[in-house]
Simulated scan of single mutants.
Amino acid sequence: MARAPKSAATFETALAQLEEIIHAMESGDMPLESALSSYKQGTELIKFCQAKLADAEQQLKILENEELKPLDLPDAG
């Protein structure tokens, strides 16, 4: 499994860090070296999040007897 980059210990923390990086990069005011560093950190965060999601999916498969079922949500309206 991928290690948590820097201080990202949870999926939610990593996702928040990734959103911060995206916002900073989209501003267009970031120097090239910072942009490259942020891009690298962002790719590490993406890998971490993907691994966490894959783990969660595997756990759901186990809970559902090895068959991932669609989530049926009740109608909100």
Rank of each mutant, 00 (worst) to 15 (best):
M1D: 12
M1A: 13
A2Q: 09
A2R: 12
A2L: 05
R3L: 11
A4I: 10
P5M: 02
S7N: 13
A9W: 05
T10L: 07
T10R: 01
E12D: 12
E12S: 12
E12A: 13
A14D: 12
A16G: 03
Q17S: 12
Q17T: 07
Q17E: 15
E19Q: 13
I21E: 01
H23N: 04
H23Q: 12
H23I: 06
A24E: 13
M25A: 06
M25H: 02
E26G: 00
G28H: 00
D29C: 03
M30K: 03
P31A: 04
L32C: 01
E33F: 08
S34L: 08
S38R: 04
S38C: 06
S38T: 06
S38A: 15
K40R: 14
Q41N: 05
Q41V: 04
T43Q: 15
E44T: 04
L45V: 06
K47Q: 11
K47P: 00
F48R: 00
F48T: 02
F48K: 00
C49K: 00
Q50D: 10
Q50S: 10
K52H: 03
A54V: 03
A54F: 03
D55E: 14
Q58N: 11
Q58F: 04
Q58Y: 07
L60C: 09
K61F: 03
K61I: 08
K61A: 14
K61G: 14
K61Q: 15
E64P: 02
E64S: 15
E64W: 07
N65H: 07
N65Y: 06
E66S: 13
E66Q: 15
E67C: 08
E67I: 14
K69C: 03
K69Q: 14
K69N: 08
P70G: 10
P70M: 10
L71N: 07
D72W: 07
D72Y: 09
D72P: 01
L73E: 11
P74D: 02
P74L: 00
D75N: 09
